[in-house]
Design a protein around this nucleic acid. Structure first.
Lengths: 243, 243
DNA sequence: GCGACTTTGTGCTTCTCTTCACAAAGTCGT
DNA sequence: ACGACTTTGTGAAGAGAAGCACAAAGTCGC
């Protein structure tokens, strides 16, 4: 316990010269684990088996264990994992310690909804800057946060040092706004625009297309004639935008 | 390719004995292709190369070609693809012909935003039913659609035959509401709840966790010390210069 | 009509993620 | 203390997706 920076292990790599080797897929599931774990902690649960936690999150137990193994966190065989310890491990890995400041660009239906979404604050995310083009909105406040003009984004972003931004603008404006954000020093971008956005290497881009999600479901409905997949027991399919 | 009787005929579904042979990953990209193609069609563009289309969507050209090959659609070597034909092929594959009716459950920030989102209609999706628990909202209308009480979901869904639903309720209610929807005959579910939801086999579930998306970006920021890995995974369009 | 050039289509390789099988390590009842 | 039972951790196998290289098939200029 205490601190164990290195968990040297026979074959499996966790740290290679400061570069973490955690599979992309695993990272995508960590937030889910953390959320479930926190809920458990609040309920006073101190120990949980991979079986139970996995069921709650909706993944297989083996997958969960393998994921956790990358964190170097240890459960106790025959018992399970210590919830508090796990919360700590996963939080540390995700860097939740620092609250990340996030900017939202575009205050249409979606942008406003995101700005007001309470779910962020409890997850270490703080919306501290808003941008719009509509002059009627610029200068106003949404949930206590000032709305800037999108043209001022580079300046404001640099001043605040915000590096994570959410793109909730129309498809047509997506690319140009993205460029503006990158110019402002943003290095992680979450785009909701139904359009392809390209960014310089080094900038992380994730894309969530709501219409596409539904169209994919429509596709499944359309071709509903395959009982072959997955079959039995809990069929929980998580997916976000993957890139 | 003269030697082996590959697949089907000009431009049509690739269905083999009821079992669809289009990779999951490909399906996930089809909506993006379709969107870009429609834009091109509107601009009067009649022909496009895999190179160009891929760049616009943000994937590699080879990936695009392979994806399209599953549709059995044919481009012309040395020229490219016929936009109109491709729009038709992809639409047919996605089943966009029929407009899918979609129900939205939960009219919080996110639910309302989705209900008002204009992007759906142009993509073959029609929001035709809304559900809430808040008695103040039940009975009202949002963008011309009546709001029902969530308890009436099974009935309403059965009457309307809606099979695709969007879950935009708090985490705590997610599972029970999902059960209700499934009881109403929903077979495809898109959940925004930050909680694991399990559904019976045969029901398709997709999960989008907005907080998780940002947390993943936070993770990348936190561990930004690894510009090593293949650098640009996406086609990088550095502002200004060309490669 | 012919050769240079373009662009598609795909077999094969490579890589990543998932699943399986099982040993290791611990608990609990008696 | 011991043996039955739980639950973790992980090597190895399997599945799926991505990328490379190249042949096939077409266009265009002359």
């Amino acid at each position: 316990m205490a601190d164990r920076p290195s968990r040297s292990y026979p074959g499996y790599p966790v740290v290679v010269n400061d570069a973490l080797v955690v599979p992309e897929a695993t990272v995508g599931r960590l937030p889910g684990y953390l959320h479930a774990l926190r809920g458990m902690a609040e309920d006073g649960i101190t120990t949980v088996s991979s079986q139970d936690l996995a069921a709650q999150v909706g993944v297989s137990a083996v997958k969960l264990r393998k994921d956790l193994s990358y964190l170097g966190s240890f459960g106790t065989r025959g018992v399970g994992y210590d919830v508090g310890h796990l919360v700590h491990s996963v939080s540390a890995m995700l860097g939740v310690a620092d609250d990340w400041e996030v900017a939202i660009v575009g205050l249409g239906n979606l942008g406003r909804a995101l700005a007001r979404y309470e779910g962020f604050s409890t997850r270490g995310l703080q919306v501290t800057a808003l941008f719009e083009v509509d002059p009627d909105l610029v200068g106003t406040e949404v949930t206590g946060v000032r709305v800037h003009h999108v043209d001022d984004a580079p300046t404001v972003l640099r001043e605040t040092g915000i590096r994570i931004a959410v793109l909730a603008v129309p498809a047509a404006a997506a690319q140009s706004v993205a460029d503006l954000l990158v110019a402002g020093g943003v290095t992680s971008l979450l785009s909701f625009a139904p359009a392809g956005v390209t960014v310089p290497a080094g900038v992380h881009l994730r894309h969530v297309d709501l219409s596409a999600e539904l169209q994919i479901l429509g596709f499944r409905e359309f071709h509903r004639s395959h009982e072959v997949r997955g079959a039995s027991r809990e069929a929980s399919r998580t997916s976000g935008a993957m890139a």
